[in-house]
Computed example of a mutant assay.
Amino acid sequence: MTDLHADVVRVLEGWKPPFGDPDARNAQDEVRREFLAHMARHPDGVWRECRPGHITASTLVVNSARTEVLLTLHRKIGGWLQLGGHCEPQDASLAAAALREAAEESGIEGLVLSDGPVQLDRHRVRCHPEGSWHLDVEYLAFAPEGALHRISEESEDLRWFPVDALPESADHVVRSLVTRALEY
């Protein structure tokens, strides 16, 4: 087991869904238990090579006034999403992976990460020919006032959207993250 694997387990064991109605909190707690069971079965569960599925870290970047969110038009998916991706060997922790991905994909320096995850999401992806799952641990990051962003090679586009005017292609996960950002 790697230090990153141990950190993911520690984060998930200590995490309680911070928001939502009781049904939403119960659903998130069930997802948390599924993630922990996956980690118990897979010592390589943090790496993309883990075929059944693997932990990913994503981050919704919010402006300092909490009136806008930065979304990426994902090159492979073709929809507007939060920033994020796979854990890498140099990541000392899950939070470090989330912050690294947000900084790499936004180009923004000085992001401040939330104290812990705000929600979890499990979704099907094509990391392997037979398919796989992303077990996504989702954070918020707050951009400094006047932050400038730049489009990375993973994005078709990157832009700020008002929290009350998200693009139509933003899925339920993004919309839920925006709600969490306003409650945080």
Rank of each mutant, 00 (worst) to 15 (best):
152 S>K: 01
168 E>R: 13
99 L>T: 04
150 R>F: 08
101 E>P: 03
112 V>Q: 09
139 Y>P: 00
130 E>V: 10
174 V>D: 00
132 S>W: 05
125 V>I: 15
144 P>A: 05
118 V>M: 01
143 A>M: 10
145 E>T: 10
107 G>L: 12
166 L>N: 11
178 V>E: 03
124 R>C: 06
176 S>L: 07
174 V>R: 03
147 A>D: 03
125 V>G: 07
175 R>C: 05
173 V>R: 08
155 S>K: 08
103 A>F: 02
138 E>A: 13
174 V>C: 02
134 H>W: 08
117 P>M: 04
163 V>N: 02
146 G>L: 01
115 D>G: 13
167 P>Q: 12
108 I>M: 11
125 V>Q: 14
153 E>F: 10
136 D>C: 13
129 P>E: 10
141 A>E: 07
100 R>S: 01
107 G>P: 12
146 G>K: 02
108 I>G: 00
137 V>K: 01
174 V>N: 08
126 R>I: 10
114 S>K: 07
139 Y>R: 06
103 A>I: 12
177 L>R: 03
178 V>W: 02
104 E>H: 12
145 E>W: 04
110 G>R: 02
180 R>Q: 08
141 A>M: 08
120 L>D: 00
180 R>K: 11
170 A>C: 07
168 E>F: 11
132 S>E: 04
144 P>R: 03
152 S>H: 04
103 A>Q: 15
172 H>C: 00
133 W>A: 01
168 E>Y: 08
100 R>H: 09
126 R>N: 14
146 G>T: 00
118 V>S: 06
122 R>Y: 02
161 F>C: 10
110 G>V: 04
142 F>E: 06
153 E>Q: 12
156 E>W: 07
118 V>E: 02
158 L>V: 05
102 A>Q: 02
122 R>T: 10
